[in-house]
Amino acid sequence: KRPMNAFMVWAQAARRKLADQYPHLHNAELSKTLGKLWRLLSESEKRPFVEEAERLRVQHKKDHPDYK
């Protein structure tokens, strides 16, 4: 399984919050909304998630050196 990218790291927590706020939204609508919200974030707001995704990528490479 591939490591999560920055969006997926962020969306993991954001999806729970959004689903709690809008329990009537279908998963497809949640995903579209999350995409729009992510694009509205500034680079500095995204930075911690980009850094975490990079950490996960490096760890994955270490754990699975033959993964392509």
Rank of each mutant, 00 (worst) to 15 (best):
K46G: 06
L25S: 01
R16H: 06
F7R: 00
A13E: 15
K62Y: 09
A53Q: 07
Y22N: 04
K62H: 05
A53P: 10
K68E: 14
H60P: 09
Q21K: 14
H24P: 03
K36M: 02
L25M: 04
K17S: 06
R2Q: 01
P48C: 02
D20I: 12
K36T: 03
K1E: 10
S31K: 05
P23I: 08
V9I: 13
D66I: 03
R16L: 06
G35W: 04
M4P: 07
L56V: 10
L34F: 12
Q59K: 08
Y22T: 10
R15L: 01
L41I: 12
F49Q: 13
R16Q: 11
E54A: 06
Y22S: 13
L41G: 08
L40C: 10
R2C: 05
H26Q: 13
P65R: 07
R55F: 12
S44F: 08
N5E: 10
L34R: 00
F7A: 04
R57Q: 10
Q21A: 11
A14R: 09
L18D: 00
H60I: 10
Y67I: 09
A11Q: 01
R39P: 01
R47H: 03
S31R: 11
T33S: 06
F7P: 00
W38R: 05
M8A: 12
H60K: 09
K61G: 11
Q59D: 07
D20K: 09
F7Y: 05
K68G: 02
L37S: 05
S44E: 13
R16S: 05
L30E: 01
F7T: 00
L30K: 03
D66R: 04
A53R: 11
P65T: 08
Q21L: 11
T33F: 12
A53D: 08
R57I: 05
E51P: 07
Q12G: 05
V58W: 03
G35E: 13
R15F: 01
D63N: 08
H26T: 15
L37Q: 15
A28K: 11
N27T: 09
L56S: 14
A11I: 03
Y67S: 14
R55H: 09
A19C: 06
A28M: 09
K62I: 05
E43R: 15
L41Y: 15
L34K: 00
G35F: 03
H60E: 12
A53N: 05
N5V: 02
R16D: 05
N27Q: 10
N27I: 12
K17H: 05
S31T: 05
R15W: 03
R2Y: 04
D20S: 09
L37E: 09
S42E: 01
P48I: 03
A13P: 01
E45L: 15
E51K: 08
L56N: 11
S44P: 09
R55D: 13
D63Y: 02
L25R: 01
A11C: 05
V50P: 10
P48G: 07
F49S: 13
F7Q: 02
E43N: 14
E43Q: 14
M8E: 15
V50Q: 11
R55T: 13
F7S: 00
A14D: 00
T33G: 07
E54N: 12
K36E: 02
R16C: 08
S44Y: 02
A11P: 00
H24D: 08
K46Q: 01
S42D: 04
G35C: 05
L34E: 01
D66M: 06
L40V: 08
F49V: 14
R39E: 07
D66L: 04
K1S: 04
L40N: 15
L18Y: 03
Y67E: 15
E43F: 15
K36H: 04
G35L: 04
V9M: 05
Q12T: 06
K46H: 07
R2G: 02
L30G: 02
W10L: 01
A13T: 14
Y22A: 11
L56M: 11
L30M: 03
P3G: 13
H24C: 04
H64T: 09
H60C: 07
K17V: 03
L41H: 05
V9W: 05
Q59R: 05
A14P: 00
H26A: 13
D20G: 07
L30V: 08
K1Y: 01
L40G: 15
E54V: 03
L18W: 06
E51W: 02
L56E: 13
R57P: 08
A11H: 00
H24F: 03
Y67N: 12
S42R: 09
E45N: 05
K1V: 01
L56C: 12
V58K: 13
P3W: 08
L25F: 05
L18N: 00
H24W: 13
M8F: 14
E43Y: 05
S31F: 03
K36F: 01
G35A: 07
L56A: 11
Q12Y: 01
S44M: 05
N5S: 06
E54K: 05
Q12H: 01
P23D: 15
P23G: 15
L18R: 00
P65K: 03
A13G: 12
M4R: 10
F7N: 00
K61F: 04
R55I: 08
P65D: 12
R47S: 07
H60A: 11
E51N: 02
R47W: 02
R16Y: 01
R15G: 04
N5I: 06
K68Y: 10
E43T: 12
R47V: 08
A19D: 02
E45G: 13
W10A: 03
S31N: 11
A28S: 11
L56I: 10
K46T: 07
D20V: 11
E45A: 15
Q12A: 05
H64P: 14
H26I: 10
K36A: 01
K1R: 06
